[in-house]
Design a protein around this nucleic acid. Structure first.
Lengths: 326, 326
DNA sequence: CCGGTCTAGTGTAACGTTTTACCGGCCGGA
DNA sequence: TCCGGCCGGTAAAACGTTACACTAGACCGG
């Protein structure tokens, strides 16, 4: 089924068929209707490869994520894929597995496949030059100078946690923060530290994958007078809860825990985890919308990037004990 | 950077460049080396769109999954993507979100993008005719007549669970099985039921997404003399553990629980879940390899489908109480 | 009645590959 | 010496689409 067949069947030229299908104005009512009818009757679908070659557009975007086993990302991927599909865009997935080399390989593959744009949650401090093919890039969650980015208001999240902690009477806390080289982790921390007027008993930096190192386990054992441990994300928080349980420390009776992200598991763990919910679905959808804008000409965009920030909300559950006297 | 530029730089014809790059035999040592050298120096990458148009091959495959929020699938996606990338294949992701309509839409999008083949974990009892473009299909986890499929040995998994349950002295169990219309769920159940010589006190069928309905909650409350609840997958098992905890039933003291899949969370939950591990990475990798075979001509393949089955293993943790007298 | 401006539609040249058909030598055998 | 193959390489025709340059006719004001 090519445009030629449709043209023949409709008794018009291929150019006219193309004009109809691309809703160009230079074709009359009658012919237009006829072409539309015939092409749908024949079940004609334009050959994307040929379109791509001619126009340089593939109507496919790349989605580059650092780690699908972190439950935050599947949810994001779902949102991205579903809104992209709604726009007729295919999504090519790359999971860099946290490796800069994997990310580079994936980006190379995507550029070779000539995706129209790339939505990326970068693993490192800068994007490999590879993808600088003038292709639009939208970052998710991790800002990088010069790129558009959409993410949750991590500062606000940190502040909400801090205020809640104070309200619940906690004056001395431990921190199991995320990696220092990831801005979102720094902002979560900064938001908390800036708004928390109590004391920080200790702080350990961990990876977002939630594996506790020896220092973290030691800190949870000593506790250093902390009544609450504030975690860089839910994975860390859940690992911490498990570690505390193994140490025979009751949560929240003996130690309170707060997370960040509100992944699904926060609701299944015992006790259920108090955390910060970010609107993952909206974030993914917005990233695709921004991409779509950039693909449609769109010259009037913020020159060097621009941020889209979504508000977050505190989800109060049972992992924080109320120490405040009524 | 086109083949024309390379040809000009090397002082040969475009045909020769193409012949070199596609390792055809009709070109001599000297020229071959020169072309290779020049093309890599110029950083030439063939335009996939043009290749696709000429050859009808895109070097992209579709991956259609039912639900990325079920942790089994991200792990699978990771394996598929990484081995596909190793083979130079791009992966276009579709998450049908459990909806047949989503699956159909996704498949339509993939066919329009002319992916070379489709790896799919189908949501329904048969694949929409849409994708029957003669395109190779490899199924994962859920067999369908006429298609190749790769999955874990669910029967064996069920048997392992049954034998372990008996060994631990459980003679009366409840079943929270998966959906009856999914073969993998039926096999898990069949394996268990076939090998378990004790009594089945009750059985409830649930979705694989792990949400408990009223019947399930009621059953967990009554317990009907069961000392162990055998779950269709880990999601169900973890939900069940949470429900039992809320009912004040201790796991494993008062009630034992077993899952299936060995998703990451089984190791973080309290108590850690005894379950069946399937080699997700191998399954995903193998699916891609099968696909690759089918893409390379490969006429000598099992005519109508064929199965590849991977062994599973029991992962013993702390969610099952030992009732057997020593 | 004529020149100019629309409207509706056509012909065709690209886009970057692969592949088929072809061709000029060179070599070996008769 | 002549002929038939083989080796190494080339020219050019596709693949299906879009977009540019055009034209035939209609319409309109002067």
């Amino acid at each position: 089924m090519t445009v030629k067949d449709v043209a023949a069947a409709a008794g018009v030229s291929v150019a006219t068929v193309s004009n109809v299908l691309n809703r160009r104005p230079n074709v009359g009512h009658a012919i237009r209707a006829k072409v539309l009818r015939i092409s749908s009757r024949l079940g004609y679908r334009p050959n994307r490869a040929a379109q791509a070659m001619r126009t340089g557009r593939t109507r496919a975007i790349g989605l580059v994520l650092p780690d699908l086993t972190n439950p935050f990302f599947p949810e994001l991927a779902q949102a991205v894929e579903s809104t992209a599909r709604g726009l007729g865009l295919a999504v090519c997935l790359v999971d860099s597995q946290g490796e800069a080399s994997g990310e580079a390989d994936g980006l190379a593959l995507l550029t070779q496949h000539a995706v129209d744009g790339i939505i990326c949650c970068p693993v490192g401090a800068r994007l490999p030059a590879q993808l600088r093919g003038g292709r639009p890039v939208v970052l998710i969650d991790r800002p990088l100078p010069g790129y558009a980015v959409v993410h949750a208001n991590y500062l606000m999240g940190g502040e909400l946690l801090a205020r809640y902690a104070l309200r619940m009477g906690h004056r001395r806390v431990g921190l199991l923060s995320g990696p220092t080289d990831i801005e979102s982790a720094r902002q979560r921390r900064a938001g908390f530290v800036g708004a928390f007027t109590g004391q920080i008993a200790w702080e350990i930096h961990l990876g977002f994958d939630g594996v506790l190192n020896a220092a973290a386990r030691a800190a949870l054992k000593q506790r250093g007078g902390a009544t609450l441990v504030v975690c860089g994300n839910d994975l860390i928080a859940i690992s911490a809860m498990r570690c505390l349980a193994e140490l025979g420390v009751g949560v929240p009776q003996d130690m309170s825990v707060m997370g960040f992200d509100n992944i699904r598991w926060t609701d299944l763990v015992m006790p259920r985890l108090t955390t910060i919910a970010q609107p993952v679905g909206h974030i993914g959808a917005r990233a695709v919308q921004l991409m779509q804008q950039r693909l449609d000409g769109a010259a009037d965009l913020p020159p060097r990037g621009g941020r889209t920030v979504f508000d977050v909300a505190l989800i109060e559950r049972e992992s924080v004990r109320n120490l405040a006297h009524k």
